[in-house]
Structure formats: structure tokens, C-alpha cells
Design a protein around this nucleic acid. Structure first.
Length: 352
DNA sequence: GAGGCGTGGCA
DNA sequence: TTGCCAAGCCT
């Protein structure tokens, strides 16, 4: 029975596999083309908790700037963080660089081929290690991500709430994983989860697993997997300070490596909490903008009051660094900081 | 084990 | 507007 289902989803994948920039499609794979482990790794890290649509442009940009893991290992930290800006979960970018440097310096520029070897690297956990091993090296590893959990919960009608159901999902995934074409199988299940077995309104009518799917038989496919309700997000408040020196340089600061937006550039500002204290980085004639910047993070809403100021050529702030006008790219800021800039920059006159 | 950690799209 | 969701990892 399991062999029948594996064959059915592989047949479906051979006909309907998504064409993705980092993917070697089923026909090319059958012709002997092997995926580049560097590109598989880079795409998997970018795809952690992130949509394919958001990742595509970043993947193209990164692989153009840094075609190999050795190239990436030699990049400057600030350059990589700036290129990652907007993609979110910035610890991924810091770990990406760490990982590239370990692979370049300690593994001769080649990725380990085993799940164990891969999972020892920074930013590579159980899912990513199994995925790289399966996709890049065609090892029959059990690949379990959110897609696989959803598909298995439905195929086997697993009603145990998450995250308690994880061991059952893993066992179900292990039961299904084939020794033949494991890389294609892993990508097939993820494509199925992304395009047919979707969280809401799954397209069961065109699913290659519609017959054996126990949740569909019971009519509860859209209710699975069962998840605990989310906690409501609190709102925090803060101040952001946008200052421009007379020569057009902007006063920014590099945030500490750990914590929220770690390692990213941002505007100087206060702490973000229920009752923040204003904390300008330099004595100046600050002007408060009418509009606040609003942004929502994973676990709280944020509202920032924005102060702007022009600084003299010899300004010496208590903290922060002046970024010359021609070196400053708003796109290299995390989104919340870019929102602040978008609101503030209109209040400055152009400098020739 | 639970919480921290981004962002944008969509119902 | 609000909530939910997307190929998790780290502490």
C-alpha cells in the first residue's frame, strides 16, 4: 500500500513539480544532474518560516553576489546583513555566515553529506539537515517540516494537538519515506503541501493521495492539524531618532548581535516597552513627526514616535555611526527601520 | 518545553 | 483591522 502511494506522489511530482530557481527538476535529475549543495542549503535556510514568493529575489541576489560557499565565507558581515534585510529572522543571516565560514575553513568548501554532519553546522537543525541530505545527496532521510506535518496529519487522520503530535507525524513520515528517489519524494510532499494540501481549503479533488487520505474520508481534512490558539500580541512603544548631518550623512547604529534585529543597522532610539524613556543620541533641535511608525513583530505590536534633526558638520553623537549619503541604502535596513525612514526623510531638504 | 525571533499576503 | 499563516532554529 505504501509503495503504491509513494509511486502515486512521485508520478504526480514528475508532472507537476514547481519550477524553482534552486531546484533540479525531476527530468533533469533523471538525466543525472545533481543539485549544488550550496544552493540547496542557501534556499533551505531562506525558506525557514518564509514563503517561496519572498525568497526568490533574495536567492537570485545572493547567488549572483556569492556563487559559491567560499565566496560567501569571504563576504563582510555588514554586506550580508544588508542583503538579508527585509527577509526577517536575522539570526538566520548571522548563522548563514558562520556556517559558510565553517564549511570553507574546516570542510574544504564542501558541505557534509550526512544528516549528522550537516546538523552540527550553525543554523542547520533537524529539518534543514534532513532536507539537504535528501535533496542534495539523495539520502533516504526523514524530512519533516510544517508541510509534511500537515500532509501526514491528514493522510493518517492524526487528531492529537500540536506540538504533542510531532512524534506521531515523524513516525508517519518515516513510514512513507522511500529508499528510491528520496530527494524527489521529499520535494514532492512539500510541493503537495504548498499547492494542494494547503492549510485552508485543500484541493482534495486533484490530490494524488485523495483515495488513501483518512482525514478526507472523515471529512475533517481542513481541521487538521489541530493547533493551540495563539496568545494575543501586546503593544509596545518607543522613540526613533533620524538625524542627518549637513553633508547628507545619516546617523545609524549597528544593533547588538543577539536579540531582536540582531546585527542589523537601525536608527538610534529608546527601549521598546510599555513606557519608554526618550533617549536621543545627541543634543540637537529635534522635531517630532505627526505620524508614528507602526510595525508588528512575531510577538508584539510596535508604535514608534519619530524625531528628526539636522546636525552640524562637526556633530559628535554619543553613539551611532554616520553613513555617507551615497553609501546609505534604505533597502539594507530591517523593515521597521525602513518604515521610519520612509516617514522621516520627506522632512529633510535635499542636499546637492 | 516554551518562548524569542520578521515579514508580507490573504481571508 | 485583526488574525493566521509560510520549507525552523536556538536557548
Amino acid at each position: 500500500m505504501r509503495d503504491r502511494q509513494v509511486q502515486d506522489i512521485l508520478d504526480w511530482y514528475d508532472r507537476h513539480a514547481r519550477d524553482l530557481p534552486w531546484r533540479v527538476g525531476p527530468s533533469a535529475r533523471a538525466a543525472g544532474v545533481r543539485p549544488d549543495p550550496y544552493r540547496v542549503w542557501l534556499s533551505e535556510v531562506m525558506l525557514q518560516q518564509t514563503t517561496v514568493a519572498a525568497v526568490k529575489a533574495y536567492f537570485e541576489r545572493f547567488t549572483t553576489l556569492w556563487p559559491t560557499v567560499t565566496d560567501l565565507a569571504r563576504a563582510e558581515d555588514g554586506m550580508v546583513m544588508g542583503e538579508w534585510a527585509g527577509l526577517g529572522y536575522y539570526a538566520r543571516a548571522r548563522n548563514l555566515l558562520k556556517c559558510a565560514r565553517v564549511v570553507a575553513d574546516e570542510h574544504g568548501g564542501r558541505f557534509p553529506e550526512t544528516r549528522e554532519g550537516l546538523q552540527a553546522l550553525p543554523g542547520i537543525g533537524p529539518y534543514t539537515a534532513a532536507a539537504i541530505s535528501a535533496i542534495a545527496f539523495d539520502e533516504p532521510e526523514v524530512v519533516v517540516d510544517g508541510n509534511v506535518e500537515r500532509v501526514m496529519a491528514r493522510l493518517f487522520d492524526i487528531r492529537t494537538p500540536m506540538p504533542a503530535a510531532k512524534p506521531e507525524m515523524k513516525a508517519a513520515a518515516a513510514e512513507m519515506t522511500p529508499n528510491h528517489r528520496p530527494g524527489c519524494y521529499a520535494q514532492a510532499v512539500m510541493d503537495l503541501g504548498a499547492t494542494i494540501c494547503t492549510p485552508r481549503s485543500p484541493a482534495c479533488g486533484i490530490c494524488p493521495w485523495r483515495e488513501p487520505c483518512l482525514a478526507r474520508t472523515a471529512g475533517i481534512q481542513a481541521e487538521l492539524p489541530v493547533k493551540a490558539p495563539k496568545k494575543t500580541k501586546p503593544t509596545r512603544y518607543g522613540y526613533a531618532y533620524v538625524a542627518r548631518r549637513a553633508d547628507g550623512a545619516w546617523l545609524l547604529e549597528r544593533r547588538p548581535d543577539s536579540g531582536l534585529l540582531g546585527g542589523m543597522l537601525g536608527w538610534p532610539g529608546s527601549d521598546w516597552n510599555e513606557d519608554p524613556r526618550a533617549a536621543p543620541p545627541i543634543k540637537a533641535d529635534w522635531h517630532r513627526l505627526t505620524e508614528e511608525a507602526r510595525h508588528t513583530f512575531t510577538h508584539f505590536h510596535l508604535r514608534l514616535k519619530i524625531d528628526v534633526a539636522n546636525l552640524p558638520p562637526d556633530a559628535e553623537p554619543e553613539h551611532g555611526t554616520f553613513i555617507p549619503r551615497h553609501e546609505f541604502r534604505p533597502a539594507s535596513l530591517p523593515t521597521v527601520m525602513r518604515k521610519v525612514f520612509d516617514l522621516a526623510h520627506g522632512s529633510f531638504e535635499n542636499v546637492g
